[in-house]
């Protein structure tokens, strides 16, 4: 649990970091509660809530019936009246059962009521493919919520951000959705002790470069970084931006990078069409950064198909290190 790196920094897994954030919040604020399916003694489908029910009891770590619409709605009503609920969807795909409460209620209540109400609810959503769970348990639907004013939509890529973003989400008076990639839960990294806030809506340049800009979110950040490392050996210098938040989106960091490199590629796990890549591409095309472009913008997203079961098909359906590397090379050589 408290492993140290060679540099003496404390290391936690992504799921441990999320759990630590929840524990800190619950210790500091009696209005924070957790709700979700099998989050108590079972510890959650991905063991993120693990032993929290032992520490905080079943009144604050509430197993809900398999009722996503109702459960999310109870969280919204509780948030509206003074609690700070964290509602865990067992899989992000199941949020579709609760769209009414997320989109029609949580996102709009402050506006519909002219600023007289606040819904400080946090939805946690395990997302992404790579687990062999096929089409209804592997989707990346974060962009859907990017279309909804009133929501904030986050995608932490590292254990440090997973903790800091959850604490920021809890401190935020508006509804926040955090998409956690299932393949990242076991990933380890440095996580500071105690409470800290990762700013919402601020992207981070994870690797500086001069030849092209790769904007990526969640697990795609790691794939993009690995691809950038390989390209560096060929003398191609890629800048990798961790988007972190798709609503609000950090235009400033992205545009500054494009002005510098003149080439842009957006990598995301959602279906390519109408996705995060379309939004970022259009944002650049509508700005002065357009004048700095030396090549067309590239989007790398998921295949235009549901997530398949067969492991080779599943792998082929979403961007991998090799595909990112190849696309980046083509972009750098202006072969697009």
């Amino acid at each position: 649990m408290n492993a140290m790196t060679e540099t003496g920094l404390r290391v936690l897994s992504y799921s441990e970091a999320i759990r630590e954030a929840m524990a800190i919040a619950m210790e500091n604020d009696p209005t924070v509660i957790l709700m979700g399916e099998d989050i108590g003694v079972y510890g959650g489908a991905f063991q993120v809530t693990l032993d929290l029910v032992d520490r905080f009891g079943p009144d604050r770590v509430m197993d809900t019936p398999i009722s996503e619409l109702g459960g999310a709605g109870v969280a919204v009503g509780a948030a509206l009246t003074g609690l700070k609920p964290i509602y865990e969807f067992q899989f992000s795909d199941f949020a579709m059962l609760a769209m009414e409460q997320i989109v029609n209620q949580a996102a709009k209540l402050r506006y519909m009521l002219g600023g007289e109400a606040s819904v400080p609810v946090v939805f946690r959503l395990p997302a992404g493919s790579g687990t062999g769970a096929a089409a209804q348990h592997s989707q990346s639907i974060e962009a859907w919520f990017g279309h909804v004013p009133g929501l904030k939509v986050l995608q932490p890529a590292t254990p440090e951000d997973a903790k800091g973003m959850l604490l920021s989400a809890l401190a935020d008076p508006d509804p926040v959705m955090i998409f956690e990639h299932k393949l990242l839960y076991k990933m380890k990294g440095h996580v500071p002790e105690g409470s800290y806030l990762t700013p919402i809506g601020k992207a981070l340049v994870r690797r500086s470069g001069t030849d092209l800009t790769i904007v990526a979110g969640s697990i795609m950040v790691h794939r993009a970084l690995e691809a950038a490392e390989r390209l560096a050996a060929e003398g191609i210098s890629a800048e990798v931006i961790d988007l972190r938040s798709i609503r609000p989106i950090d235009a400033e960091t992205i545009l500054a990078s494009v002005r510098k490199t003149g080439r842009l590629m957006v990598v995301y796990e959602g279906v390519k069409a109408f996705g995060v890549g379309a939004e970022i591409s259009a944002m650049v095309a509508e700005s002065d950064a357009f004048d700095h472009l030396d090549a067309p913008i590239l989007r790398l997203g998921a295949a235009d198909a549901p997530v398949p079961y067969n492991p080779d098909l599943e792998r082929a359906a979403v961007p991998q290190v090799e595909t990112i590397e190849a696309a980046a090379r083509r972009l750098a050589r202006r072969e697009v």
Binding site: T31, G73, V74, G77, G82, P85
Partner: peptide, 25 residues
């Protein structure tokens, strides 16, 4: 008054959430 609602049934889970707040606090 937590509000009227344009969605039929929209207020039902919200009411349960408000009651949960009362009980928890």
């Amino acid at each position: 008054n937590l509000g009227a609602n344009g969605i039929v049934g929209g207020g039902l889970p919200i009411a349960v959430g408000a009651a949960l707040t009362a009980k928890r606090l």
